[in-house]
Nucleic acid binder design. Structure first.
Length: 360
RNA sequence: CCAGGGGUGGCAGAGUGGACAAUUGCACCAGUCUGUAAAACUGGCGGGUUUAUACCCUACGGAGGUUCGAAUCCUCCCCCCUGGA
């Protein structure tokens, strides 16, 4: 699958979506996003519901109009976000009814309704996320509840389509998320149940990352093989550049990850060490490296003719030298965040470009 | 010239007899970040041996001195700041 049609939009695959959690990819604007070659973003149901409110956004004609960005919009169910907050703070709770944090109770039905209000192109069913270290009991619970919630989400989805009188070609695509932790049997069960309900695509949930930050490729691959090639496969929250390469090989089409944008704000830039396609697509992690912009050596005048990445064509690299960007970082100038974010996002879209070459 | 205050590690600035190789901040060095409560966070930061503990050397303007022991007390010298003549 090298592209899909959603509403009147064509989405090329594979694709990386940066996280515009709150309706903005932090520190860059919609023009910047387009300039980086991005074709879509992922927004967060929970955050946008909290503020400014999904009904508020609906008044604008949806989040795409609100942001004034023309790409494909994915909305996450909000469940992961709330559960992550629950795990971090110890507050809030998860019941079979839904997830609750503060005054917000997010039920499967509510999550879908909010996503319809946001007007996103790809929506995701509320799922029950477990920590990768979860024991079998917890994994079983997560699979069971994820299945129940998926059914309720599907019902609500159909109800929304009917209420809004959406034609077949004008409905958002609907994805569910496979859980099951590290347990292949549970993954299999989760996938089977979700397939029975029927979705346009299936997510790889609960990113299985070990203590060294390595994605479990075995489970990732196994998870992909549980769903048919005709359906979309979304590796949620994935990942590092080499993970994208690997996962495209496993059959995933969609990715979203905060790493490039957060890293940019934390002064870490992604830099290709080579433009040798074979090396980049080998699945090893040695085709790129990092520039830690806080390092004083990047201020050196000897680098005045040097851009960040000699292989890069991003706005930042085309326009400014490495010492100037480094200088902006040193004086804590907010422009540095924008320029760094643009560069890292372009790194990712270039990687996607390389991956599409082998995909078609 | 008189009176008062002060000179501490790259910088700022604590410490005023042993717990001081010296609090803290900045800078510097090395990192972390994965469906974003993060422009956040972690570690290092005189030199040497050591796995850690530990030990040795050099260091709080300079030179001497008191003391078991001094960045801290005393003497002299140099320099800076403030007020006065």
């Amino acid at each position: 699958m090298s592209q899909i049609k959603i509403r009147n939009k064509i989405l090329n695959l594979p694709v990386y979506f940066p996280d515009a959690t709150r309706g903005v990819v932090r520190s860059v604007d919609s023009v910047d996003l387009a300039g980086c070659g991005l074709e879509g973003v992922l927004v967060n149901t929970y955050h946008l519901h909290q503020f400014p409110g999904d009904k508020y956004i609906a008044e604008f004609g949806g989040v795409s109009r609100f942001m004034n960005f023309d790409g494909v919009f994915v909305s996450d169910s909000g469940g992961f976000q709330i559960m992550s907050l629950i795990y971090k703070t110890g507050k809030g709770k998860i019941t079979s009814e839904g997830v609750k944090f503060g005054n917000t109770l997010l039920t499967p039905e509510k999550s879908i309704e909010i996503q319809f209000n946001l007007g996103t192109d790809i929506i995701i069913a509320l799922d029950y996320f477990t920590d990768p270290k979860a024991n079998l009991d917890e994994v079983e619970t997560s699979v069971k509840i994820t299945t129940e919630w998926a059914k309720r989400c599907k019902q609500e989805y159909e109800k929304q389509i009917e209420c809004r009188k959406l034609e077949e070609g004008n409905r958002p695509l609907f994805l569910a998320v496979i859980q099951g932790g590290r347990n292949k049997k549970m993954r299999e069960k989760s996938a089977k149940e979700l397939l029975k309900i029927g979705f346009d695509g299936y997510g790889f949930g609960g990113w299985i990352i070990d203590e060294n930050g390595r994605l479990d490729y075995d489970i990732s691959k196994f998870n992909a093989e549980l769903t048919p090639d005709s359906s979309l496969r979304f590796a949620l929250g994935v990942g590092k550049p080499e993970d994208l390469v690997k996962c495209v090989g496993f059959g995933y089409h969609m990715f979203d990850c905060v790493l490039p944008t957060r890293d940019a704000r934390h002064k870490r830039l992604y830099v290709y060490k080579t433009n040798d396609l074979e090396k980049i697509l080998s699945g090893q992690d040695d085709f790129y490296g990092f520039y830690y912009l806080q390092r004083a050596k990047y201020l050196s005048q000897n680098l005045k003719n040097r851009q960040i990445d000699n292989f890069c064509d991003c706005f930042t690299c085309r326009t400014y030298s490495l010492p100037y960007l480094s200088y902006l970082v040193k004086i804590n100038e907010t422009l540095a965040f924008r320029l760094a974010t643009i560069h890292n996002l372009r790194f990712y879209t270039r990687l996607i470009g390389y991956l599409r070459q082998i995909n078609c």
